[in-house]
Computed example of a mutant assay.
Amino acid sequence: MHDNDASPVNPLPPVVWALFLLIFGVEIILSLASRGLIGGAGGVGWRLEALSSYGFSNEWMSFAVERGALGLDTLKRFVTYSFVHGAFTQTLFVGVFLLALGKFVGEVFHPVALLALFILSGIGGALVFWVFGPEQGWLIGGFPSVYGLIGGFTYLMWLRLGALGQTQLMAFRLVGVLLAIQLLFGLLFGGGSDWIADLGGFATGFLFSILLAPGGLSRLLAKMRQR
């Protein structure tokens, strides 16, 4: 029997809303502080303090590894950098991608798996940035984690195209287009090396989706037995 009161659009998973509200909650506080509306005179410097305290620094990470000082303050940055941004515009784009990709991936993934995918992709993006990025590079913002959701989306599309007998490489169109746009903007307006972390986040998200997707481990074991 058809439910006339049912919403024609599936609601967003609560974990997506939680991540979205956390990211924008931080941004609203920093934006209000930068305008002097909260925090008084010291609030103007809150964003810089947040980026310094919670952003990911390649130089900081290399120094910690060399000294064997991988304490909580260093390790936390693998996660916290995704929740602080340099400007409202960056936060807005991250939020839009989070809602769009989170809805699609969240309709298939368990909420815990979706949260793990977001966090692990951010960690993977930071590690790739540390290894291949500039020695003094700084990483802030949720794009690597969002690219991890794109990796999850790509994996689901890859499975769907395979089931339909179509070319599975078509699943990589979205990330290809986004990276091409980033490259174009970088050439036209100048840009940093954040794309390295984005690509690392995407690869991490795609690979972990093999395990995190429903039936992922059993599907992987079945494929290994076939070989």
Rank of each mutant, 00 (worst) to 15 (best):
F97Y: 13
G95F: 08
F118K: 00
L99I: 15
A100I: 15
H85K: 05
P111A: 07
I119D: 08
G106A: 11
V96G: 10
F109H: 03
L115A: 14
F104S: 06
I119T: 04
L114H: 00
T91Q: 02
L120C: 13
L117V: 13
L114C: 03
A100F: 15
F97S: 10
L120S: 15
V94Y: 02
P111W: 05
F88Q: 08
F97C: 10
Q90S: 03
F88I: 15
L120R: 08
L92N: 09
G86W: 13
L115H: 09
F93C: 04
L98C: 14
F93G: 03
H85G: 08
Q90K: 00
V105I: 11
G95K: 02
L114M: 01
G102P: 07
E107I: 04
A87P: 05
L101S: 13
Q90R: 01
A100Q: 12
G106T: 07
L120G: 11
F83P: 00
V96E: 07
K103A: 14
F104M: 07
F93N: 02
H85W: 09
F97R: 05
H110V: 06
L92F: 15
K103C: 11
G95V: 10
L98R: 05
L101Y: 12
L92P: 08
A87F: 08
F88G: 09
T89D: 12
T91D: 05
Q90V: 02
V84M: 03
V94G: 01
L120V: 15
Q90Y: 02
F88L: 14
L92M: 15
E107M: 08
G102Q: 04
F83V: 03
L98D: 15
H110G: 07
L99C: 14
H85Q: 14
V112Q: 03
G106L: 10
H110E: 12
L101I: 13
S121E: 13
G102D: 11
L117P: 05
P111N: 07
T89C: 06
V105S: 02
F97K: 05
V84I: 12
L120N: 12
T89L: 12
L99F: 13
L99G: 09
F109N: 00
E107K: 01
G106P: 09
F93L: 07
V105L: 05
V96C: 11
L99S: 09
G102T: 06
H85P: 11
F93I: 09
L115D: 11
V84E: 02
E107F: 06
V94E: 04
F104V: 12
G86V: 13
L114A: 00
L117I: 12
G86H: 10
G106V: 10
G102A: 08
V94C: 04
Q90W: 02
F109W: 06
G95R: 00
F88N: 07
T91A: 05
A87R: 01
L99D: 12
Q90G: 02
L101C: 11
L92D: 10
G86A: 14
A87S: 11
F83L: 04
L114E: 00
V84L: 05
F104Y: 10
A100V: 15
V94S: 01
A116E: 12
H110W: 08
T91W: 01
K103W: 14
A113R: 00
S121L: 12
F118D: 06
T91E: 06
S121T: 12
K103S: 15
L92G: 12
G102M: 04
A116I: 14
G102R: 00
A116H: 05
T89K: 08
L120M: 15
F109V: 06
L114Y: 02
G106H: 04
F104D: 10
G95A: 08
V94Q: 00
A87I: 05
